[in-house]
Design a binder for these strands. Structure first.
Lengths: 142, 142
DNA sequence: GCTTGACCTTCCAGTCACGGGAGGGTCTAT
DNA sequence: ATAGACCCTCCCGTGACTGGAAGGTCAAGC
């Protein structure tokens, strides 16, 4: 199977597949004309990668998951652990974003948003009165 | 003020400040010895950038915000609009992460996580039975 | 005056996960 | 024979920095 067909079957762009070969995630054979020749096992790996990446696993985690995928003696606990770590990571990111959103929403609420120049958002960014001097204050204490 | 002091005062790494100069976000003067010389206005810009970046604004948005910051005739509505767009972006990211989390949590729940190899997580990633063939099915229809 | 060490400079390379495009070979159908 | 779709490799660019090498400058202590 040529790379175009593999791309179609896996849902991965051609460029991405070549990149995955470059970093050793897949090792297709070569036809006599130099074209990559993907077997069914290669295609399985590509589909696996497509799904794992779409679930947010990093390339390195995908590498781990792939080796578990192909390890007939794997412990499902190992897979579960990686997945749980990923969930924790997602939780941290969500919390971070929510806290960002809170700050920005407060600022938006405080800003009248008309054609006058005075703006609590700009005031905050320029470190006007309030909490944002804490950073330096804390550094100065240390 | 040398770059080290500017770094301390602004909370930005030295490397980052040099990078910001390279992309034109700040234009410190130079002393006779070639060292950068930051004035109070430069420092204000750096602090502004530190705060805006920490709130998740991209460099390009920071550029916009900076020019509004220094525009005495700005309309606060413009600032508010940029901030609202940022909030929308955050909302989209949060939703994406929550949907990822739901999928992963379902998988973790289904996996017994012991030393046996059979694992619903791996099954899902390898496109075993269920919903993940939708992609190809939909493509095939087209 | 000399050395040490902290500071500063520029330039180059790497990060992550690809995407774009140049320049060229191969295959298939007409 | 030629058109057009495919394939190849190689190199550069992304965002927002970070690390490191190689070297100049400055202040303090001996």
């Amino acid at each position: 199977m040529n790379i175009g067909a593999a791309s179609w079957q896996s849902g991965l762009p051609v460029k991405t597949i070549r990149y995955y070969e470059e970093i050793g995630l897949v090792r297709p054979a070569r036809s006599e004309n130099g074209y990559r020749d993907f077997l069914e096992t290669d295609l399985q790996r590509l589909k696996f990668l497509q799904r794992a990446r779409s679930l947010g696993f990093s390339i390195d985690k995908c590498r781990e998951l792939l080796s578990l995928y192909e390890d007939r003696n794997r412990a499902s606990a190992d897979v579960k652990e990686i997945t749980r770590e990923k969930i924790d990571e997602i939780d941290r990111k969500i919390e971070e974003l929510q806290s960002l959103k809170r700050v920005l929403s407060d600022l938006v609420r405080a800003c009248h948003g008309d054609d006058r120049p005075d703006c609590p958002i700009i005031d905050d960014l320029s470190g006007a009165p309030g909490a944002q001097d804490c950073d330096r204050a804390e550094r100065d204490k240390a």
